[in-house]
Design a protein around this nucleic acid. Structure first.
Length: 435
RNA sequence: GGGCCCGUGGUGUAGUCGGCUAACAUACUGGCCUGUCAAGCCAGAGAUCGCGGGUUCGAGCCCCGUCGGGCCCGCCA
């Protein structure tokens, strides 16, 4: 007898097969009984009019989430969900479960507050709708890798334990590294730039750690960063073109291979324009004054409200869920940011807004050693902690740039979730380090 | 770090100008039920209303404190 997945059952009509999984639901109607089995991919239904077939469950007082092997004859039956079901059942209990789960996971929707859901994420993540979110996370990473791989990018893994709190200093987690201080990497930025000197084009999928005490629906303290960096660019617009293609590649991957999950979650996939509209930071501020009468000119950054306004404008003016904002002021960007050679004070950097939330930050980096020395001096940083980083520039780096996508941000916006934590398997935030 | 708000059975809620034996849904237990698919119907068990103190004849409800949590802003992906 062949052991199959629930999602394959339609291909086995007429055969006797075995499924393995969890008791997702049990409906005893008197003369007829249904057992819904959930495996790692989906659910399938077994039917019996012989109550002794369910005896291994019912006699032992077992309930939901009991792990079983369910064998039966695959029958096409219009009344069955999906049109196919198992008859002539035999059940073997692999792992008995008698206690009810802390939150029901066999209802269409989970009825639990966010804290309860996160407290029981171990169980909540078994729910088909929750699980679909994380299957889409896998699809996003797969699409990211496929798109970049096809363009000659090499995947790298850079260290997450680093020696110096380099980029901005305050927002890193310090750890005890055999008696010396070390830090959890807040970004693979320096290493991915260094690796441009090795592979020319690199990308990384990995965790980053931010010790910021922010407490919002769109921040956590550990998240997955989809990082890209590559050489021989013209300027940040070259980087933006690649960023656009990567987003389009991810969306296409989801559309092609994750239809069931998208459907289950009622996802509204965005159209990715051939060229995503872009607006300069200074023009964006003018636009906000013009459209909303709020003068944010002189502010060094856009507020969340500003970003929502700009997103609304991009939607009206260009019919786009995406908008690049370019040329952020140098003062708000890290020291390695390449300045705009034609516009002092502004940078060759960009953010990508997706449905009103920052999804990507990127830009052109400095590539000349001398410029790095100047930039560090201007930022009042000592050179010593940066010496390994600077070695790359002393010995020749091409004009280069890159960007980073927040994986959970992408999912949150894609699925229109009200909280980033709902796109995170086991979120780490200001007051949660478990489960 | 600043501001606003919320803690009631396992879970989600109602009850909050003080007067209940704390209500409803779901989950759970038992019974009925031959096509369920958020199964249905009947019955049952399950909460000293986050914790501590105070006001009062009387506190889930008012006051103070404390703990836990949520949202917005700052900051960022």
């Amino acid at each position: 007898m062949e052991t199959i997945r629930t999602t394959e059952i339609g291909q086995h009509v007429g055969q006797r097969v075995r499924l393995r999984g969890w008791v997702h639901n049990l409906r005893l109607l008197g003369g007829v009984s249904f057992v819904v089995l959930r495996d790692g991919w989906g659910t399938a239904q077994g039917v019996t009019q012989d109550e002794t077939a369910l005896a291994p469950l019912t006699d032992a007082g077992l309930g939901m989430e009991t792990v079983i092997e369910l064998a039966g004859q695959v029958v096409a039956e219009p009344q069955a969900p999906g049109g196919v079901e198992l008859h002539d059942l035999s059940i073997e209990v692999l792992t008995p479960v008698a206690d009810p789960p802390p939150i029901p996971i066999n209802k269409r929707q989970i009825k639990a507050s966010l804290p309860t859901l996160l407290d029981h994420a171990v169980m909540a993540n078994r729910h088909p709708a929750r699980r679909a979110v994380f299957r889409l996370a896998a699809g996003t990473m797969a699409g990211f890798r496929a798109t970049l791989g096809a363009r000659g990018f090499t995947e790298i893994q850079t260290p997450k334990i680093v020696a110096s709190a380099t980029e901005s200093g305050s927002n890193v987690f310090e750890i005890d590294y055999f008696g010396r201080p070390a830090y959890l990497a807040q970004s693979p930025q320096f290493y991915k730039q260094i690796m441009v000197g090795v592979f020319e084009r690199v990308f990384e999928v990995g965790p980053v750690f931010r010790a910021e005490p922010h407490d919002t629906t769109r921040h956590v303290n550990e998240y997955v960063s989809l990082d890209v960096e590559f050489g021989f660019i013209e300027d940040h617009f070259t980087v933006m073109t690649t960023a656009r293609d990567v987003i389009a590649g991810i969306i296409a991957t989801l559309e092609d291979s994750y239809a069931a999950e998208l459907d289950l979650l009622n996802a509204r996939l965005p159209a990715v324009p051939a060229a995503i509209p872009h607006i300069h930071f200074a023009d964006a501020q003018d636009l906000i004054l013009q459209r909303h009468g709020v003068d944010v000119r002189g502010e060094p950054d856009l507020s969340p409200q500003d970003e929502r306004w700009l997103a609304a404008w991009a939607q009206e003016e260009h019919g786009s869920d995406f908008l690049f904002v370019t040329g952020y002021p140098m003062s708000k960007r890290p020291f390695y940011t390449h300045p705009d050679p034609t516009r002092p004070g502004y940078s060759n950097s960009f953010d990508l807004l997706f449905r009103g939330v920052e999804l990507i930050t990127g830009g052109q980096r400095l590539h000349l050693y001398a410029n790095y020395l100047d930039a560090l001096a201007r930022a009042d940083y000592p050179v010593e902690p940066f010496e390994t980083y600077l070695e790359a520039f002393r010995f020749g780096m091409p004009p280069h740039g890159g960007f980073a996508i927040g994986l959970e941000r992408l999912l949150m916006q894609l699925l229109e979730l009200p909280n980033l934590r709902l796109a995170t398997l086991f979120p780490r935030d200001l007051n949660r380090v478990a489960p």
